[in-house]
Structure formats: structure tokens, C-alpha cells
Amino acid sequence: NVITRVGKTLTSIEDFDALIKLILETAVGALEVKKGAIFSWEDSHFNVRATVGWEGISSGKILQVLEPSLIWIEKERKLLLIPSLEKRKGDIISPPLIFYPLISRERFWGGVVLCERKEGRNFTEDELKIISNLSSQIAVAFENFKLSRDIERTYFETISALALAVEAKDSYSRGHSERVGRYAEKIAKRLNLSQEETEALRDAARLHDIGKIGIEDKLLKKEGKLSLDEREIICKHPIIGENILKPLKSFSRLLEPIRHHHELLDGSGYPDGLKGDQIPLITRVLTVADIFDALTTKRPYREALSYEEAKKELRKLVDEGKIDKKVVDTLFAMIDKKEL
């Protein structure tokens, strides 16, 4: 059902709003809030684009209650955060509330509203950063939808917002794609890859795990060892990701690295068991960047490794013939020169 909703090319306003609603649903679940809404700012008026958790309450009523705060963020161009207080009986909303402006290239496009934590707690600094990044990406999607005739670019930017929401569902993966993209782009430049290849690598890194939206949360967050059946399901996420991006003809260069970022040079990777020269260089770069970030960030089963510890693990993989030596040596040179 999720993949069906995502996998439509943006041919109408209805398709765009369906994706915006999916982003909101994902964010509401990831940040453990009860209610959320996204508003656009058009002709000096706010319009409701998506709501989640407001059962039995009309869009008009939601806008009426939230509009004073939305007007404030439009005027001030900054977030409005109301901390958790005791809920009064009869209120249709209760703190904590966050109103975040959608701003792209200094233009105001609307606002995101999230409220009522499931456990009553306030938003953490980490969660506020997630909401900031997500709001920025939604604003870019709104801008593209309104100003650009490039439907595929609009779809790409909207899916990028969805990728951020998907990543927020797991506290251990938050910021992962951004870091992988940064590492991969730096490696690519040191390897003197072309601008086109570097841009493809950067965009693929942003979306390399988008396929995880098709995998159940309980499986992604499982702390113990995966069963064979569970591992088989997890191994499908690169294929799901490829299928989500397939409608985008102008982004076809991203399909290979997204599908094959878990392939290994000795053929032991997935989903296709590619070997050696069957794996292009940009995909090898993405693989190394992905592994490096996984090693150097905290996981449910271990603490984050230091750069030196990560280097030892990567060297083992090189010696086993699994990852590209030239790419790894380039990464090591950057680590030694403190260029990451």
C-alpha cells in the first residue's frame, strides 16, 4: 500500500497532496506525536494540505484554531514552540506544540504543526533538528511544485522529504543519509570523478535507504539477530528503493547505486550477488561511505567505533576482497588529514 502511494508520478495536485500526507503520517509516527498538519501559504491565506490524528474535526476548525500561531510564524519566520502543560478538558489541541515555517530561498511557503506527544514529554534538541531538516525539505518540494514545470524534480524533492521522515523513525539512523552523502561526495572529489558522477552519488546517497519505507518498523528496529526470513525481507529494501525512483527518467542514473549499495566485490552482497567489475565505481564509493557511517555511529548492539577502530574493520573487508581498496585508501587519507 505504501509503495503504491509513493510510486505514482506527480501528474496532479492530488498526487502531490497524497505524498505530503504520507510524509506527515511518517513524521507523526517517527516523532511519537498524536496530531500533525501541513499548511500551504497561497495568496496571503493558509490552506490545509494534510492532517493526521484530527478525527472528527473539520479542516476548517483545525485552521481556525491554529491560524493565529501560523500567522505568527509567517511574520517572524521562525519556529514557535509551546512546551508541555496540563491539558484542559475540551481543548482540541494540547502542548507540546511546534509550529515550523516552510521556507526555501527566503520565501515562506507554509507551516508544519506537530502536537501532543504520546508520552506527554517535550521535544528534544535532536527531534527539533529533525523537524527543522524535514521542514526545509518540504519547503523545497512546495517551491518546486508551485514554480517549476519539472514534475520529476518535484517528485524527487518530495521523496527526499519522505526519506528524512523514514530515517527519523529509527533513532540510530537519524542523519545517516546526510552523513553518507557528505562522505561519498568528498571521496568522489578526491578520486576526480566527473561533476555528473559526483552529483549522482550525492543524490543517490540522499535516497539510498528510501526503500525501508516498505519494511515493517519492528523489523528495522529489532535489536537481536534476524532470522533468515527476516533478513530476506530486509534485503529487499534496495529493490523497493529502485522501484520508487523508476518513474523518474531524468534520475535514472541513481537506480544502479541505490539498488546495489549493499553489493560486495566477492559476490556475497545483495540483492543480486554482483562481483568485481559488475559494480561501478560510484556504487563502490557509496558502499564504503555507508559502511563507514554505520561503523562510526551508535547501534542498539554496540557503541560507535572510533575512526581508528573503523579503519581496522574496513581494512579487514578490503583484505577479504569485499570492498574497493582504492576507495578505502582515499577515505583513510581524508581521515588522516582530518578532512571529514
Rank of each mutant, 00 (worst) to 15 (best):
D329G: 14
W109C: 08
E230L: 04
I130N: 04
F156R: 01
I103T: 00
E42S: 11
R206I: 15
I92A: 06
K129C: 08
E199Y: 05
G181D: 01
E256T: 15
L264W: 06
A188V: 00
R153P: 00
I159Q: 00
L255G: 09
E32D: 12
A204I: 01
S252Y: 07
K8F: 07
L128M: 13
E199A: 09
Y100K: 14
E67Q: 15
R121A: 02
L66E: 13
D209K: 05
P83M: 03
V180F: 05
T297K: 12
E185Y: 00
I73S: 00
V33I: 15
L201D: 00
G241P: 09
K78L: 10
E196Y: 01
K316Q: 11
G90K: 08
D15Y: 05
L63N: 13
V6Y: 13
V327W: 00
E232I: 07
Y307R: 14
L219S: 07
D209H: 05
K225M: 14
E197S: 15
T198V: 03
S132Q: 12
I233T: 08
L193R: 01
T330R: 02
F251N: 01
V166M: 11
K35G: 07
A163H: 08
I323Y: 00
K311S: 09
L314Y: 00
D293M: 04
T26C: 03
